[in-house]
Simulated scan of single mutants.
Amino acid sequence: MTFVSAHSTPAVDTAVEHATQAMIAVRQLRRTYPTADGGEVTALADTDLHVSDGEFIAIVGPSGCGKSTLLRLLAGLDLPDSGRIELNGHMVSAPSRDVGVVFQNATLLPWLTIASNVSLPLRVGGKQRGPALGTEELLDMAGLGGFGAKYPNELSGGMQQRAAICRALIRQPKVLLMDEPFGALDALTRERMNAELQRIWLATGKTIVLITHSISEAVFLADRVLVMSPRPGRVIADLTVPLDRPRDFADAVGHPAFIELSHQVRKLLNEGEGK
């Protein structure tokens, strides 16, 4: 494993510069929500970012900064008050088959087998555009070969999350959005799942956007780490991760470059919280 110097780039300038070549391009995004007292709270303001095709991006920020709101907007599950989101050059205004989503809980249907859970989008999502991945192929890739006939309650939490990732990939989406997918797992299982996710990403070449509270998870997995400000959220730093692929967690976390970048992310978060 080799390392180069980490560097940051201005988020707004980068988003504009790469907008024409980005798989995801976000410009001046704003989202507000009404409050019980008749006022409103601004979750996101002046948010810009870009994600290139095949890139792995991790987004970190303080609680309540709008990370999950941003992911819902990227998925077309919610609409912004202003600004623009483009997926592969097309404006996002509704959920798309080109986007797969994985949430913190696997949300597998307990009465279906793992194989049936994984293939469910093919049965309920309408006509498939282009070839779908095979269920067994996906399960094998995720290390779940031989578990297709099992039910969710027969699998560990980490295995259930791997099945949820397979379900999100079954329709061959261009983009995989992940909202704290390993947040409910214990530390050792989470570390193993980080390695599994890296392996799946390397095997599929999908564009991945990961929301996480874990700085070490973000630095280990991502090509770039985007740091968000406290609410109203916006991207305040765009940091390149100085690690070659593939990465080994035990080797990476002790290296000075990994430690330096993790410290830089933590400092940005602490400075933001102090404002």
Score class of each variant (00 low, 15 high):
residue 149 A to N: 12
residue 151 Y to T: 00
residue 151 Y to Q: 02
residue 153 N to H: 11
residue 154 E to G: 03
residue 154 E to Q: 14
residue 154 E to M: 12
residue 154 E to D: 00
residue 155 L to D: 09
residue 156 S to N: 02
residue 156 S to I: 04
residue 158 G to R: 12
residue 158 G to K: 10
residue 159 M to I: 05
residue 159 M to H: 01
residue 162 R to Y: 02
residue 162 R to P: 03
residue 162 R to C: 03
residue 163 A to N: 02
residue 163 A to D: 03
residue 164 A to F: 13
residue 165 I to Q: 02
residue 165 I to Y: 01
residue 166 C to V: 03
residue 167 R to S: 13
residue 167 R to Q: 14
residue 167 R to D: 10
residue 168 A to E: 06
residue 169 L to P: 07
residue 170 I to A: 14
residue 171 R to A: 15
residue 173 P to E: 07
residue 174 K to N: 15
residue 174 K to M: 13
residue 175 V to G: 10
residue 175 V to C: 11
residue 177 L to W: 02
residue 178 M to Y: 04
residue 178 M to G: 05
residue 180 E to C: 14
residue 181 P to Q: 12
residue 182 F to D: 14
residue 182 F to Y: 14
residue 182 F to C: 13
residue 183 G to A: 09
residue 183 G to E: 09
residue 184 A to K: 02
residue 185 L to A: 08
residue 186 D to Y: 00
residue 187 A to W: 10
residue 187 A to Y: 15
residue 188 L to P: 10
residue 188 L to A: 15
residue 189 T to N: 05
residue 189 T to Q: 05
residue 190 R to W: 12
residue 190 R to N: 10
residue 191 E to D: 15
residue 193 M to Y: 01
residue 195 A to S: 15
residue 195 A to H: 15
residue 196 E to H: 14
residue 196 E to V: 14
residue 196 E to R: 14
residue 196 E to Q: 14
residue 198 Q to M: 10
residue 198 Q to H: 05
residue 199 R to V: 11
residue 200 I to E: 02
residue 201 W to G: 00
residue 201 W to I: 01
residue 203 A to T: 15
residue 203 A to L: 14
residue 204 T to D: 14
residue 205 G to N: 03
residue 205 G to S: 04
residue 205 G to V: 01
residue 206 K to Q: 12
residue 206 K to L: 12
residue 207 T to I: 09
residue 207 T to Q: 06
residue 209 V to F: 12
residue 209 V to H: 13
residue 210 L to Y: 06
residue 210 L to F: 06
residue 211 I to N: 06
residue 211 I to D: 07
residue 212 T to I: 13
residue 212 T to P: 07
residue 212 T to R: 08
residue 214 S to A: 11
residue 215 I to V: 15
residue 215 I to Q: 11
residue 215 I to P: 13
residue 216 S to I: 10
residue 216 S to R: 12
residue 217 E to H: 04
residue 219 V to R: 09
residue 221 L to G: 02
residue 221 L to I: 03
residue 221 L to Q: 08
residue 221 L to M: 04
residue 222 A to C: 08
residue 223 D to F: 05
residue 223 D to Y: 05
residue 224 R to M: 05
residue 224 R to K: 11
residue 225 V to P: 10
residue 225 V to W: 08
residue 226 L to I: 12
residue 228 M to V: 11
residue 228 M to L: 09
residue 229 S to E: 14
residue 229 S to Y: 11
residue 229 S to T: 11
residue 230 P to I: 03
residue 231 R to H: 02
residue 231 R to M: 07
residue 234 R to I: 05
residue 234 R to W: 05
residue 235 V to P: 04
residue 236 I to E: 10
residue 236 I to P: 08
residue 237 A to N: 09
residue 238 D to N: 11
residue 239 L to D: 08
residue 239 L to P: 04
residue 240 T to H: 08
residue 241 V to M: 03
residue 241 V to L: 01
residue 241 V to R: 00
residue 242 P to V: 00
residue 243 L to C: 13
residue 243 L to G: 09
residue 244 D to M: 10
residue 244 D to G: 13
residue 245 R to C: 03
residue 245 R to I: 01
residue 245 R to Q: 06
residue 246 P to C: 01
residue 246 P to M: 00
residue 247 R to C: 06
residue 247 R to T: 04
residue 247 R to M: 05
residue 247 R to H: 04
residue 248 D to N: 11
residue 249 F to A: 02
residue 249 F to P: 02
residue 249 F to R: 12
residue 249 F to G: 04
residue 249 F to D: 04
residue 249 F to H: 10
